[in-house]
């Protein structure tokens, strides 16, 4: 199938008694920018290791461009930047980048690669003498040393300061705009929210959500409707509020003056608000806000934990 960049089919992997990846089913399509989210130990790095053929799955199959991961790497179709990927000491940045370009079957010009990765000014520095953020940029340069079709990044911006991070994502977007598929694992939810067009949430080795960032937020009931109900406007039963369409959570507090402040977490805020008026209520100080991916993420992983506990 030519429309698959990468595919996990029922992939499981455990280390001793720890189940790192559990029945993962996943297909990446060309041109997607995909964020992989999950708490620490969710199986993100293990999944990337399996994807790149650094580890073999216990069960299931992993394919890259219809073949084995190793074949894809040898064909120069994949570039990767791993957290655990070390750099060679006692060489200059320029020498290391030139090496990466040389061994890549479709290698780019080293000077161009260094410029793209924003490390031109580090070219003559020894690799051992770099800061954490600088090292990350050198790793990124190694990942884009050739004309890859897929770029895999594991927490790429760890250790970068804010301006460098912005520069990094600009470079990354340029890669995506050139038609490359990008898969990145991250801790920073705002990165996933603003950059990825598809978000995967991994939890305890399972894929518990897969969709656009807006869909993930919706799934988590990621909009908040808040308003006040004044006694002068008439009474309102709590059950009426609970019955509003899309309501997944309700928070009700009564102030000493009798004003009730209501906060509803909703998967369908439009229908919820329409329902409010239909029920004859008069919400004051009405606000509808998005909860953001972070809240959605916490909600989804929290729900998965509750299910596990049951």
């Amino acid at each position: 199938m030519s429309t698959e960049v990468a595919a996990f089919r029922q992939v499981s992997k455990s280390y001793g008694t720890v189940q790192a990846v559990n029945g993962l089913d996943l297909v990446l399509r060309p041109g997607e920018t995909v964020a992989l989210l999950g708490p620490n130990g969710a199986g993100k790095s293990s999944s990337l290791d399996l994807l790149l053929g650094l580890r073999e799955p216990d069960q299931g199959t992993v394919s890259l461009f219809g073949g084995s991961p190793r074949a894809a790497i040898e064909a120069g179709r994949v570039g990767a930047m791993l957290q655990s990927g070390g750099l060679l000491g006692e060489v200059k940045v320029r020498e290391l980048v030139r090496f990466a370009c040389d061994v890549h079957p479709r290698g780019h010009n080293p000077a161009k690669v260094m410029e793209q990765a924003g490390i031109t000014e580090l070219a003559e520095r020894k690799v051992d003498k770099l800061s954490g953020g600088q090292e990350q940029r050198v790793r990124f340069a190694l990942a884009i040393a050739g004309a890859n079709d897929l770029i895999v990044l594991d927490e790429p911006t760890t250790g970068m300061d804010v301006s460098v991070r912005r520069q990094f994502w600009a470079a990354m977007r340029a890669e995506a705009d050139a038609g490359r598929t990008v898969l990145f694992a991250t801790h920073y939810l705002e990165e996933a929210d603003s950059i990825a067009d598809r978000v995967l949430v991994l939890h305890r080795g399972r894929l518990i959500a897969d969709g656009t960032s807006a869909e993930i937020k919706a799934k988590a009931g990621a909009r908040r409707i808040s308003f006040e109900l004044h006694p002068a406007d008439g009474a309102a039963e709590e059950s009426v509020l609970r019955a509003l369409p899309g309501t997944v959570g309700l928070d009700l507090t009564t102030r000493p003056d009798g004003v009730r402040s209501v906060r509803i977490r909703s998967t369908d805020a439009d229908a919820g608000v329409a329902g409010l008026y239909r029920a004859g209520l008069y919400p004051r100080a009405l606000e509808v806000t998005s909860l953001g991916l972070e809240q959605a993420f916490l909600t989804i992983t929290g729900e998965a934990d509750e299910e596990n506990a049951r």
């Binding site: 994949v78 570039g79 791993l82 990927g85 070390g86 750099l87 061994v103 890549h104």
Partner: peptide, 11 residues
Amino acid sequence: SGWVRQLRLTA
């Protein structure tokens, strides 16, 4: 250091 892993990501 992980350099050996990094090399395994090359052709």
